[in-house]
Every structure is written in C-alpha cells, then in structure tokens.
C-alpha cells in the first residue's frame, strides 16, 4: 500500500490508471506550449516597453507592419490547436470516453451517488444486478435493493469503499439518487458528473495497488467537501476473497 505522500504532491498525482500517462502528456504539451508563447510574447512586450518609452524629441512613428504579417502568430496558434485536437486529442478522448471494455471481461459496478456518500453495487458471482426501487430505501438498504428479485440474492453493496481488481478494467454505471455529483478519482484522472435521471458509463483500469481517493467534484450541498470514498485496488485473488467475505457476511444476517 502506498502512503498518501507517495501518491499526492505539488503537481499531478501518481499515475495510477492506464490512461493517466496519456492524459498527462497532453497536459504537459499544452503547458510547455503555453509557456513558450507567453515567454516569446513577454520578451517582445518588455522590449517594446523599454525601446519605445517616451523620450523627449523622439516622436511616435506611424509606420505600420502589414496586417497580414501580424496574423502569422495567430495562424501558428490556430495550426497548433487544430493539430492538438485532431492528431493528439480526439484519439485519446475516443479511447477514454467512448471505447468501453466488454462487460464480460470487466469488473462491472453500479455507482449510486447520494448526499453525501458513494454506494457501490456489485452483481456478485451471477453477474446480474438485482432490481432497485427508491421506495425500498432505508438505513439498512441505502440503494433500495429489492430482495424479492432472485438476481439480487448475491448482490453486494459497499459504501464509500470501491474495491477494484488490478490489471482488469472496471466498468462503472453512474447514477444519482438526488442531485448532481461528480465521480472523481484524481490518481486515475477519472472524472464524470453523476446526474440524476441519467445513467453514464465510465471505465478505468488501475495499474497500482493501493487506496485512491474519490472526491465529489460537483457542488452537491453543505457536506459536499466530505463526500469522499476510496477505490481500493487489489489483486484479483484479494478481490474474489473480498466478494466471498461480503457474501458470507450477508448470509449471516
């Protein structure tokens, strides 16, 4: 397990998912480009301030640079931006946001957000999610799981702790029971608004074991700042053992 100080620092957190490195590269390209543009502009700006400061006997000169020439930097920036979108950006966007792992090969989980907790609903060994009904919601049944549905017999519900196997994609379906929340795992570079009335798919594949903070990204009320959870990344064996233990706990009740 990594200690928090190894995960989070003065720059982006540790890269704990498969796509974190790619997204970071894009952040890097942008920030180097921004720095370059700013420094070049800055040098010219300071040069102008010093060189063209008002001096007695030196009048302003109306000579004009041609407008076409002045648009060269604008053109360069436009080309850079289009290059970033079509060559660098869209393929990664497509991979992260539009290409999903097959359900059979993934750890599928329903994330049900509420003020101010994260509920994680796992289908259990049968791979099928039981029916949910908000009228069944109670303190012992936070997501309103319908026990009369056979598919829900081996379902597992975990609050604020989201176990996920290492080296296998996790496919999560996000829904909200009340207001808009934001599912956000900084170490994975995963972020998605969780909007009531909608079901949104996301995926991530962890590459490091450990506990990774989930922090709500969208203002959801007075305890928004404490709407926290953890993705606990473990090996497949540990994950299976966790499932078995939760099933045993459930059987005891």
């Amino acid at each position: 397990m990594n200690a928090p100080e190894q995960l989070y620092g003065w720059w982006v957190p540790v890269k704990a998912s498969t796509y974190a490195a790619q997204l970071d590269t894009q952040l890097d390209i942008f920030h180097w480009a921004m720095l370059l543009i700013f420094v070049l502009w800055g040098i010219y700006f300071v040069y102008c301030l010093a060189h063209y400061r008002a001096r007695p006997g030196v009048p302003a000169v109306r000579g004009q640079l041609s407008v076409a020439k002045s648009m060269v930097p604008d053109g360069i920036i436009l080309v850079f931006e289009m290059f970033m979108i079509f060559v660098i950006g869209l393929p990664v966007w497509a991979q992260v946001m539009e290409t999903f792992p097959e359900e059979k090969k993934a750890n599928v989980v329903h994330v049900i957000a509420q003020q101010f907790a994260w509920n994680f609903h796992y289908p259990g060994p049968d791979g099928e999610f039981g029916r949910r009904d908000i009228h069944l919601v109670s303190s012992g049944n936070p997501i309103g799981l319908d026990d009369s549905d056979p598919a829900s017999k081996d379902d597992i519900v975990s609050i604020n702790t989201m176990p996920a196997p290492l080296g296998k994609p996790t496919l999560a379906y996000l829904t909200s029971m009340d207001v808009i929340h934001g599912f956000n795992v900084p170490a994975f570079r995963t972020k998605q608004d969780v909007t009531p009335g909608m079901r949104v798919r996301i995926w991530f594949e962890p590459i490091l074991r450990g506990k990774f903070e989930i922090a709500c990204a969208q203002l959801c009320g007075l305890a928004h700042y404490r709407m926290l959870g953890n993705v606990e990344v473990m090996t497949q064996e540990e994950f299976d053992a966790w499932i078995q233990k939760k099933l045993a706990d459930k059987a005891e009740l």
Partner: peptide, 17 residues
C-alpha cells in the same frame, strides 16, 4: 492561455471543477 487546456476535452477531464 490557461483556457486552452480547459477548452480541450482530454485535458479538461482532469482539470474540470
């Protein structure tokens, strides 16, 4: 300039909010 990585979808995932 700092608007660029925000208006650009892949980098906005991390920087949003």
């Amino acid at each position: 300039l700092t608007g660029l990585p925000l208006g650009f979808t892949p980098t906005d995932i991390y920087l949003h909010d």
